[in-house]
């Protein structure tokens, strides 16, 4: 595959090429999708980079495995990957909550995601405050808000990723955004926002 053609080839074509033995296709697919997958997983897992990398690797592994059976025209590769990552993260978060409930003494050290919005706001870091506020949202709301406002997916695409209806997506994103606004309200001065802006 010539170098200049790689960046114009659509994802599904690359997948077919990969399944036919083309080695360069895998590199292009990974270059395109691994950043998105890793970013999304990191946000879902409250900043736990190690777990996020595990999830990202697992999601790409599933993509390589499904490549020979991929039916073109049914779904976008990126939407499919988001869905896999969302499900993997949900499983891991559920597992974490179960372990936390059972026994804290012999549990492995969990990433410090109990740090509240108030504590983080002390040093006035807006991005950290946003992350902390996101972490406090219920999982489904966080998923919907991140997919909509950070990953930039459309509502129908989010509906496909989360396996719910479009109205449910709109409801989740609205509730999530409202909850974020409330979580960060009253801290405008600390965050460095000027009055009346």
């Amino acid at each position: 595959m010539p170098f200049d053609a790689a960046s114009d080839t659509p994802d599904e074509a690359l997948l077919v090429l990969y399944a036919s033995g083309d080695r360069a296709a895998a590199q292009e697919l990974a270059a395109r999708h691994l950043p998105l997958v890793l970013g999304f997983a990191t946000r879902m897992l409250a900043g736990d980079r190690a777990e996020a990398e595990d999830v990202a690797q697992e999601a790409m592994l599933r993509l390589w495995r499904v490549a020979p059976d991929w039916r073109t025209g049914e779904a976008k590769v990126s939407t499919w990957l988001y869905r896999v990552v969302a499900n993997l993260c949900t499983d891991r978060l559920r597992g974490k909550k179960r372990r936390r409930a059972v026994g804290l003494d012999d549990a492995p050290d969990v990433a410090d995601d109990t740090q509240g919005v108030e504590a983080v706001l002390v040093d006035g870091d807006r991005m950290a405050a946003l992350n902390a506020a996101l972490d406090e949202l219920p999982d489904r709301q966080r998923q919907a808000v991140v997919l909509r406002h950070i990953e930039g997916l459309s509502n129908p695409e989010i509906a496909e990723v989360m396996d719910i209806g479009v109205e449910a997506v709109e409801s989740l994103t609205a509730r999530g955004k409202r909850a974020l606004t409330q979580a960060m309200a009253g801290r405008r001065a600390e965050l460095g926002y000027e009055e009346g802006s």
Binding site: S20, G21, A26, L29, A30, L61, W64
Partner: peptide, 14 residues
Amino acid sequence: LMARVLSDADALQP
């Protein structure tokens, strides 16, 4: 991470 992902791709490639 990229290296691990690509080696998975190599291992699973038909």
